[in-house]
Design a protein around this nucleic acid. Structure first.
Lengths: 235, 235
DNA sequence: CGCTTCGTTGAGGTCTTTCAATATGCGTGG
DNA sequence: CCACGCATATTGAAAGACCTCAACGAAGCG
């Protein structure tokens, strides 16, 4: 049995109504202040090198993290060897807050990454006496939910082109980058996040470059040459 | 640029097949007790007919819902006419809790549906003085997040067969049904949820039936004949 | 400098979509 | 009661898109 694919084509980006949502904004890091405060007070800083795991799928989740610098990928492995990257975490993002008793995904540093970590029980204790913190934690989970919905929208899109363009625009916004930025992840990471193969990812990027829409130096530096044109490619 | 969007006219009234079956499903609603309590106390019950909207994408979200009987689909529309169903809500599920100031999706009743509704502000007020309720609200959002991740995993699956099988098994579990149950949604709803076309959905279901793995009477009644075999098809 | 890993690119195969047509179900009206 | 119409569902054939297989090229590290 093997699989094939199905793709879907199309991208995201909302029409324009809902002003709510999500990742298309210049990353307002102002949201979960109370949670940040909690981390600032009692969390311990540690450094992970590229490839090191912060936590593993199925493992009891006794710690929660906040990314300070670097980038983290959270993924799940399946019995057939396939891997699905569920999310990328950039500076300011939290990891592990939505976990139950055990981690649903494995989190791995993509590049050298510094994180602040604290025990889940510690955070719970603080939240017991701090209603603001409790609400802030809720907001963080709501944001995670919106991110996951965005991800689902990208995956539901037919067509590799739209998925890739959507990913690039999304990432640029999240990273707070103007037009040029570095991708912290490999082609395989991108492919596993977008539900494509590395071949299709590579080909599609080459195609975008041939059209003069993006410029790539090496495999990890990207520059968006015509944002408007790129955005027009998404419904 | 319009694709066949079935949307607007579902309002007319749906088959109402045999008897609104899915309405009477026993759901394991054990989780957010405090939130349920809040609804039980102050929410107002109302009934929506098939095709009626509970709330619309982009609209200010001043109400939150809990489904009592029936089924609801939440979807987003795109400028090119495409539609993406984000989630299905069955009895016991909440709707609108994760919205910001405006609804991210349109929620529509798939069959005759009774819901309990309360004002968001009311719930907020209650939560101000009730830490348990606050935590329960958090849990509800975490559950929504996990559902969305599940959805993303299904969409990332290569192959229509795996998506459909995954959907059927998932739905059977959620509906608390044994092996036979009614689907409250149309083929178009399924397709828009799974990132496929109705043709592929139809073909794949026919294929499953030809293999003796499922049995279908009409287009909305399904019976899973060999759960084990079906589960083996998923990684 | 050679090795290993990652990334790119080409050719063929398979599966989904698209285009098109038919069938079924349900409500309405003769 | 049956014919008709609308909407949903099913099915066929051809086209398009992505995956698989395979080879080549580039980069990092000993």
């Amino acid at each position: 049995m093997d699989r094939h694919i199905t793709r879907s084509r199309a991208m995201v980006m909302q029409p324009l109504n809902t002003g709510a949502v999500s990742s298309a904004l210049p990353r307002p890091t102002t949201l979960p202040c109370a949670v940040c405060d909690a981390f600032d007070e009692v969390a311990q800083t540690s450094v992970f090198r590229a490839g090191q795991e912060l936590c593993a799928q199925g493992e009891p989740s006794y710690r929660v993290f906040r990314v300070k610098t670097g980038a983290v990928a959270a993924y799940r492995l399946f019995s057939d060897g396939r891997r699905q990257v569920m999310s990328f975490h950039l500076p300011g993002d939290f990891i592990g807050l939505e976990a139950g008793v055990s981690h649903g995904s494995t989190a791995v540093a993509l590049i050298e990454t510094t994180v602040e970590a604290m025990r889940r029980s510690e955070l719970s204790d603080l939240a017991l006496n701090d209603a603001d913190l409790g609400r802030a934690l809720w907001q963080v989970s709501i944001r995670a939910f919106h991110r996951s919905e965005e991800h689902a929208l990208v995956l539901a899109r037919h067509g590799a082109l739209e998925r890739i363009v959507s990913f690039l625009l999304n990432f640029a916004d999240r990273a707070g980058a103007a037009d040029a930025f570095d991708l912290p992840m490999s082609r395989q990471d991108m492919a596993d996040y977008l539900g494509l193969t590395i071949h299709t990812v590579s080909r599609t990027l080459s195609q975008l470059e041939a059209q003069g829409l993006v410029e790539a130096r090496g495999s990890r530096q990207v520059r968006l040459l015509r944002r408007a044109r790129l955005e027009d490619m998404l419904p």
